[in-house]
Amino acid sequence: MTARIEHLVTSGTFTLDGGTWDVDNNVWIVGDGAEAVVIDAAHDADAILAALDGRTLRAIICTHAHNDHIDAAPALAAATGARILLHPDDLPLWKQTHPDHHPDGELTDGQTLTIAGTDLTVLHTPGHAPGAVCLHAPDLGTVFTGDTLFAGGPGATGRSFSHFPTIIDSIRDRLLTLPPQTVVRTGHGDTTTIGAEAPHLQEWINRGH
Rank of each mutant, 00 (worst) to 15 (best):
I61V: 15
A196P: 07
T108Q: 05
L93Y: 02
I167A: 14
A50I: 05
T186M: 05
T121D: 03
L107G: 04
L149Y: 06
E6R: 05
A51K: 12
L8G: 07
E203H: 15
S170P: 14
S11A: 11
D190A: 15
E35R: 01
L113K: 10
T63S: 14
A79L: 07
L52D: 03
D139A: 11
V143H: 06
G19N: 12
L86N: 13
H101R: 15
T177E: 06
I48R: 01
R58Y: 01
L52A: 08
L113T: 02
D44G: 02
T121E: 12
A59W: 05
A79N: 10
G141W: 07
G131W: 01
D68G: 05
G110R: 04
P88A: 07
E203V: 13
A41Y: 00
L16A: 15
R159A: 15
V38H: 02
H124P: 02
G189I: 06
H124Q: 03
T112A: 12
S11V: 02
N25H: 03
L176A: 05
I60G: 04
D139W: 00
I167N: 15
L120H: 09
E6A: 04
D100A: 10
V133G: 09
K95I: 00
A34E: 13
H7G: 00
F144M: 10
A50R: 13
L149N: 04
L201D: 13
A77Q: 05
D22P: 14
I205D: 07
F150Y: 15
T192C: 06
T118V: 03
P74E: 06
R58V: 10
N26I: 06
